[in-house]
Computed example of a mutant assay.
Amino acid sequence: MIDLRSDTVTKPTAEMLAFMQSCEVGDDVYKEDPTVNALEDFVAKWFGLDSALYFPTGSMANQAAIKMHTQPGEQLICDKYAHVYHYEGGGVSFNSGVSCKLIDGHRGMIEAEQVRAAINPPDFYHSPLTSLVCLENTTNKGGGACYDIEVMKNVRAVCNDEGLGLHLDGARLFNAITASSYTPKDLGQIFDTISICLSKGLGAPMGTVLVGKKHVMQKAMRVRKVLGGGMRQIGYMAGCGLYALQNHVERLQDDHDKAQAISSTLEHLDFIKRVEPTETNIIIFYLDDQVQATLFEDYLAENQVQISNMGEGKWRIVTHLDYTDAMHVEFLDILKGFKA
């Protein structure tokens, strides 16, 4: 099976499993798991931020950050495609009592002046108090698009002017770093909090690290407990994340190169209507209006291929650690072989 639905389908490598088995563990609720502590210290230093905390999932880390930045009845600003709005089960309202002001950005990315225009007047008590801005890098529904660092800096300047917090959903942040010229420390100077998912392109089986400034992160342990995220001998999983950060970041370029090759192939096929710009490991494309989606889907299934049908002629392919060179050659041939 060639599974290109998501980079979440990866499995630990043999080297990662061997490293995991060598990890020393303790009770992380007491902060006595040395491997978790090492992962958190590694991430905090890498981003030049005060502290970090290991969470079981990216959604929990994002939801914790939102709760740490806001009070019930307030409002956050994000793009209309944002993961915190679309794919976290309504957690913004359920967990924090906060509403979302949605911005019509470009491929999931928003500009500083859009943020400024979306801020509710603080002295107008009829509207929610704006307290937080959430960016996502790379953007999921935006097809793996990456923020330019100057855009992020400009959003930071607006947040400084208006007294707002700034959180980065970095589910695929190292894909963005690989495709761009900025570093983790550059981002640490911009954001108050950043969530870093370890279980997508980096290939760990689970886990996200939330890293940030002390005045926000001092609430993180309590909020994680409230959300049910306290874990015990979790150092085995944290060890997988530490191994991934130390060994799997540079290889993300291989995923990007394969994605570019797939995108280029799709652009030359007569049954494809359009391919969105491909910057990282996500390819978004549209079938020609005359092509039956079920026919295409059945053809892929017959050839042991899985990708994501997003509806209305829109499809998604995601390259990842377990998508081998041999699979890549075979998949390109399969695409070329489809007859509409």
Rank of each mutant, 00 (worst) to 15 (best):
D3F: 13
L4Y: 08
D7G: 06
V9T: 14
M16Q: 13
M20P: 01
M20H: 06
D27L: 02
V29H: 02
L49H: 08
L53I: 13
Q63V: 02
A64S: 15
P72G: 06
P72S: 13
E74V: 09
Q75L: 09
L76H: 02
Y81N: 13
E88P: 01
N95D: 14
G97C: 12
I119C: 04
F124L: 12
S127I: 12
S131R: 15
E150S: 12
V155E: 00
D161T: 11
E162W: 02
H167V: 08
A179N: 06
Y182K: 04
T183I: 10
P184W: 15
P184L: 15
K185G: 04
K185A: 11
L187I: 09
L187A: 12
S199P: 00
G201T: 07
G203N: 11
M206W: 04
T208Y: 01
T208A: 05
L210F: 02
K214R: 11
A220T: 00
R224P: 01
V226F: 03
M231E: 12
Q233W: 05
G235K: 07
A244Y: 03
H248T: 02
A261E: 13
I272G: 04
E276M: 14
I283G: 00
F285N: 11
L287Q: 09
D288V: 15
Q292E: 15
E302A: 15
V305F: 05
Q306P: 00
M310D: 05
G313S: 10
I317K: 01
D322L: 02
T324G: 08
D333T: 05
K339G: 07
